[in-house]
Amino acid sequence: MGDVLVTAPDAEHGYELLAQAGPLAAQVGGKVVYAALGDQAAQAKEFATRGAHRVLTCSDPALTPYQTEPYTEAYLQLIEKVKPSIVLIGATIRSKDAAARVATKLEVGCGCEIMNLRLDGGRLTGERVYFSGRSLATERLLKDPQIATVPARLVDAPAPQGAGGSVEAVALKLTPPKAKIVKREKKESGSVHLEDADIIVSAGRGIKKKEDLKLAEDLAAALGGQVGCTRPIAADLKWLGDAHWIGLSGHEVKPKAYIGLGVSGQIQHVAGMRSSKIIVAINKDEEAPLVKISDYAVVDDLYKVVPALVQAVKKARGQ
């Protein structure tokens, strides 16, 4: 018995976790407690009406922007206060650090980006990507509290309902972090939401120059879709921002159609797009893994195929 403590670095992500926490709390006979930290304190009522029986807030300036050390302290103090049997933490590239650190202090396991959360044999259980995407592992948390990090966009956020649970401000004792941020720079505005795109045209290293990205952009525009890319295009070459990056270490997408242009389809990329309804590969190498896992493949030079495809799509759509 015990409560389910939920927290996420982003409010929307937090609502989604509340939807997943509800059934777990009912099964363990506990309450759903949401920790609204930093900026989220102002939205406390929102969490209370979307499934939290109890919302704890703390707007200590040390909690904004996110930093691993103060968040580790905050999570540990909240766990000490709530004594939950389950802790769900919204998984982002950063929050995972604090989750793992908290689990270490408590000498317990930590679920990494767990999907399909459930209680099985009375223990928190779920699936996660393993072997770079070659497999899905079913994992079980063996020790209490059962801590899992959970990705965004697995379920819809619940709509607000009723008066909602209680809200209570808590004081946390936070020490200044040893790792100091001396500069922080946002590389792009977050206007791209690949997860919402019906059609994604994904650019790989088969595209030789930054200017040639126009091929992908034109095709995406003709289809009414968005441009995605592989890790080297975003991270090495920096031709596109991280919001476009698909894969194990990037975004996971499930569009109606994914069209890879010069994408080899290494497993780490496939891990982020394998659930696409239709997969199209345009690649000059018939041995490329993406060709082998595609519904439709054109084995040819993308520089010849894509302009023709743009024309054919425009014609078909009467543009």
Binding site: G111, S135, L136, A137, T138, I279, S294, D295
Partner: peptide, 16 residues
Amino acid sequence: GVKILKNQAPKMERKR
């Protein structure tokens, strides 16, 4: 603290 119960390949059936 975590036990892997099984490790299974996701199904990938494509038209090819």
